[in-house]
Design a protein around this nucleic acid. Structure first.
Lengths: 226, 226
DNA sequence: TATGAGTCGATACACTGTATCGCCTCGATG
DNA sequence: CATCGAGGCGATACAGTGTATCGACTCATA
């Protein structure tokens, strides 16, 4: 059959150049905009103008995509400082800062072991800065700070979301959830709790985080210099 | 039409008595056995010999079911002790113990604000035991301990799962993931990290958790008695 | 007995992650 | 140069998800 009679091979969209980096960036865009639930392989593929299964040439499963996202976030964590204390504080603040820019990071933190190159590099720079500290004290110290940070930012983000869910601003939050707590407290079943909530100073998120962190660092200091 | 001619109303399965408690117990059974992913409204319904939509008379969404599960887990957390330090330590250990019995609890911890009756009761008993502590110091202290615990148990569970995933026992874990880390370290990009991992004492999970916790408690003590 | 309100849950929908497998391409071989 | 074979890409299909919708059925009332 002559060329003229043969139909053209079906017109294919020009193959979009792809890479793990492009995929991860697309996924992060989606997650930043609409939360982790908005990240589906189909949506990521659409974002890249590609068919979904194409992604499986670059990753084996969605979990691996999430791992890549997490490692990309670790690339933004840059602990600095001259003393071990400054470095650990910086690690904590920097992680928290990254979570504020990528809320989904809080959902993933601590969910799987973080062994990507950027996570390792982050650990390396922290550990390197702790070389004045006794060898056996390094991991417990770093581990404790990381644990604290993970828990603290998760709760902070959870709180933010709850506020947002009840109506976007703090006034509505107090109007929706405040009454629930007030009713609970009114039952008299939580006297100590209600006293504290009513009478204690209400710290903002920055202070709360910082106080807990400094406590932990104080404790670490005591243990190190012992 | 006479009864004899009329067909019986279609035989319905005897209506299974239902309650939030039965639903939550079924969900927890599933989650304990096969992880949080195994909890779907359909599976819970099947477990109870009920059609899925029936559950929506008792809960408004799956998230609410998860909230109920979390609160049920809080019912198992019973902090005790005579001093504020004992109580906070007990809170931490007890939470960790509950996570060991219900791994899925670690996935949920810190993900949403915990305002169920058992969570509040847990908070109440802790706060009540801290009445010797200055009013403004209570929340930061409890918050810091909670944050630490959340992060610590999440990472612990994540590690356990990674081990299990690579082949069920610690030998295989070292055979699978060890080599990856060894290769990474062999690149020379993580000198400090590799030194610590190679030469430092390897603590088990119990000790790691306890050390971080005692550090934090030491720091809190310093702050309280100041 | 006829009618209305109200509830219950089967069905349906839109979406998920990913296994499968047909097709298409391209390189090696007769 | 024709034929065959292997290999990979990605469309299709599948088994599952959470939950909105709405028809059917029940029961109290007129």
């Amino acid at each position: 059959m002559l060329v003229w009679e043969r139909p053209e091979p079906q017109e294919r969209p020009a193959p979009v150049p792809l890479s793990r980096e492009r995929i991860v960036r697309a996924a992060i865009r989606l997650a930043d905009a609409d939360g982790l639930d908005a990240v589906s392989l189909r949506k990521v593929a659409t974002e890249l103008d590609v068919r979904p299964m194409r992604l499986y040439s670059y990753i084996d499963s969605k979990d691996e995509l999430l791992d890549l996202m997490v490692d990309a976030a670790y690339a933004e964590i840059r602990p600095t400082g001259d003393t071990w204390r400054e470095v650990l504080r910086s690690l904590a603040e920097s992680t928290r800062h990254t979570v504020h820019e990528h809320e989904w990071f809080a959902d993933l933190l601590g969910g799987r072991p973080q062994l990507g190159p950027h996570a390792l590099a982050c650990g390396e720079s922290v550990v390197a800065a702790l070389d004045g500290v006794g060898l056996d004290a390094v991991m417990p110290a770093v581990g404790a700070v990381n644990a604290y940070v993970i828990g603290a930012v998760r709760r902070e983000i959870a709180g933010q979301r709850a506020e947002r869910a009840t109506g976007m601003d703090e006034k509505r939050w107090q109007a929706e959830l405040g009454p629930y707590l007030r009713r609970q407290f009114a039952t008299g079943r939580f006297p100590a709790l209600s006293t504290v909530v009513r009478d204690a100073a209400h710290l903002d998120a920055d202070e709360t985080f910082r106080i807990g962190l400094e406590c932990l660092l104080d404790g670490i200091e005591a243990r190190i210099s012992r």
